[in-house]
Write a protein that binds this DNA or RNA. Structure first.
Lengths: 240, 240
DNA sequence: CTCTGAAGGATTGTTCAACAATCCGTCAAT
DNA sequence: ATTGACGGATTGTTGAACAATCCTTCAGAG
């Protein structure tokens, strides 16, 4: 192992170390609290109460609010406070429109690279995270760990987006999925919802591995159309 | 004019009025300052100096910094301060990867809608902003208003992205273009750069209007490939 | 009864001052 | 040339204070 290897590894860890900011940690706490569903959409987050509960000053807390506001998890209304984002049916449609563009686009871009000279080894290597996510979901379903099925499903789509090999696409997909979690909590049985798509994930993976890239892209498109319709139905029955 | 019309107009202006936040206005000032090139990439923004110059407190200024940081115009280094973002060649590649996915994806999504039953009137109506941007650029070029040619070019791509009719796609495109402005300033003659693509804009518009949507999408792809290569060349000659 | 308008309290927006933590450059010592 | 310590400067964070705004309540007019 040469010196440059050491330095490279250290540089990879640098982003993890920079997380020392108090506001950033507060944002992390609130983010998981929100995406896990403990804070229902519409809940008002009082600066004083939460600041006291977490032991941070109002100024620091406001910085955390800004962070989550830009991730669209919180809605900041001037002179009124911040609220857990409440998504409308139009928001769901918009999110899936963006998903179609991002995920199908990522598949398409990966396909173009593969056609433009890409070794077979490099291709399977690129698909490893996708395969991992698929198997993670199947294993979780076999053990009836429904919440893990849900997170595995997220991992699958995140991995697909990562096929574009674009940090910005990956980050946008991360924010998109976090926002979508707000939607999933309004469903009666989110477990069954995610589980139903496990075979689809497997099918798309196999299409990708086989190099059937156009088929993979259209499979993803119909996948997303179906999921969107199902979610919108749940919304029609529920709130909004 | 009915009552609902009145209310609709007022609601449209609401976003403009909500800009009463001091931090938001400070962010606006800094944003234009940065995108116009007055603050070169790498410049450090001292909290004390800028706070004194703009007459706002450090806390408010920090909120503005967070806003611009999330738009990637500023880079926030912990315990070191904020700097005007300095983009690397990899950033340029990433930005164009995202542009390909977003802009080509928007065209493709619009195409799918058009095929799935869309009146001809509705289609030309949808293309109005694109046509306006193209003509705005041509008019500016005819009068040798080079900076206006550049902004018209931005408007064109923003309008293309808006074909997806997705607020989130539109916003992402806006942030992307703002970030790209950081890149354009490193070129010797950004005017000529933008002017060269005016015929391409016109060609894509005509393909869209004629319903040649696949051709429009691939034309946009080659367009972006060429622009990316040109920018990367300029970067190789210049900094980083 | 409904609508209007005026207190009143509560919460947010913003500023200020202070201290701790960290970074950066300098300089001496090995 | 590298190391280590010192000191100034800047950021991170806190707490308190005041102004501005919102929400609720309530009384009065039509």
């Amino acid at each position: 192992m040469t010196t440059s290897d050491w330095l490279e590894e250290l540089q990879a860890e640098r982003t993890g170390l920079g997380r020392a900011s108090t506001a950033g940690r507060v944002a992390d706490v609130l983010r998981t609290r929100i995406t896990e569903g403990h804070l229902p959409p519409g809940t008002r987050l009082s600066e004083e109460d939460i600041g006291a509960a977490l032991g941070v000053s109002r100024n620091t807390l406001r910085e955390a609010f800004r962070l989550l506001g830009h991730e669209r998890l919180l809605l900041h209304e001037f002179n009124r406070g911040v609220f857990v984002r409440k998504l409308t049916v139009d928001d769901v449609r918009d999110l899936y429109q963006l998903r179609r563009i991002l995920e199908c686009g990522a598949v398409r871009r990966a396909a173009e690279r593969r056609r433009a000279g890409f070794s077979a080894d490099r291709w399977v290597e690129l698909l490893v995270p996708v395969r991992d996510a698929v198997e993670e979901g199947e294993a979780a379903a076999a053990r009836d760990r429904w919440v893990e099925v849900g997170t595995a499903n997220m991992h699958f789509h995140q991995a697909v987006a990562a096929l574009a090999q674009s940090p910005r696409v990956t980050e946008a997909m991360g924010h998109l999925l976090a926002e979508l979690r707000l939607v999933f909590h309004v469903m009666d049985a989110p477990q069954a919802f995610h589980q139903a798509y496990l075979p689809e994930n497997r099918a798309i993976l196999e299409l990708l591995a086989a190099g059937e890239l156009d088929a993979a892209e259209s499979a993803m498109a119909t996948y997303l159309d179906a999921a969107e319709a199902q979610l919108i139905d749940a919304y029609a029955a529920g709130p909004a």
